[in-house]
C-alpha cells in the first residue's frame, strides 16, 4: 500500500545490562543496523529481529531470564512473539 520498506526496531538503554543483548542481536541478525544515540541504542532490521536467550547466555557466561528485557527496553516496533527462549519482532507473519 505504500513503498516503505518494513523495518522492525528495538531501542534499549545504554548500560552494562544491554551490552550483551546488543551483541547477541548483532550476532543473530546480520542485517541489523545499530544506531548509537545519546543514552540509547536503536537496532533496526528489515522485516524481522530475533533475540535469543541462548546467545545472551553464551556472551554473559551465566543464566539470563529473557523477561528481564523489560527493564531496559525503551521502545519497539513490529509484532512481538515471546517465549522462554526467544523474542521475535516481525512484520507480515
Amino acid at each position: 500500500m505504500n513503498p516503505i520498506q518494513s523495518t522492525v526496531f528495538m531501542a534499549l538503554q545504554t548500560n552494562d545490562d544491554t551490552r550483551p543483548i546488543i551483541e547477541a542481536l548483532q550476532r543473530d541478525n546480520p542485517a541489523a543496523v545499530v544506531h548509537r544515540l545519546p543514552a540509547m541504542v536503536k537496532i533496526d532490521a528489515p522485516g524481522r529481529l530475533v533475540l535469543r536467550r541462548s546467545t545472551v547466555e553464551e556472551i554473559l557466561g551465566t543464566a539470563w531470564d529473557l523477561q528481564a528485557i523489560n527493564l531496559n527496553l525503551i521502545s519497539l516496533s513490529g509484532n512481538v512473539d515471546e517465549t522462554e527462549d526467544e523474542m521475535v519482532l516481525h512484520w507480515n507473519r
Binding site: A11, Q13, P38, A39, M40, L71, L73, I74, S75, L76
Partner: peptide
C-alpha cells in the same frame, strides 16, 4: 520519549533521562 529523552541525555539531564526511560520501558 525517544528524541526528547535522548535530548535530555545530550543536555546533561540525568534525572529526566532516567524517569523518561523508566516510563518508556513500560511503553514498549
Amino acid at each position: 520519549f525517544m528524541p526528547f529523552m535522548s535530548g535530555a541525555a545530550y543536555n546533561g539531564d540525568m534525572a529526566t533521562v532516567t524517569f523518561g526511560f523508566s516510563s518508556q520501558s513500560d511503553e514498549a
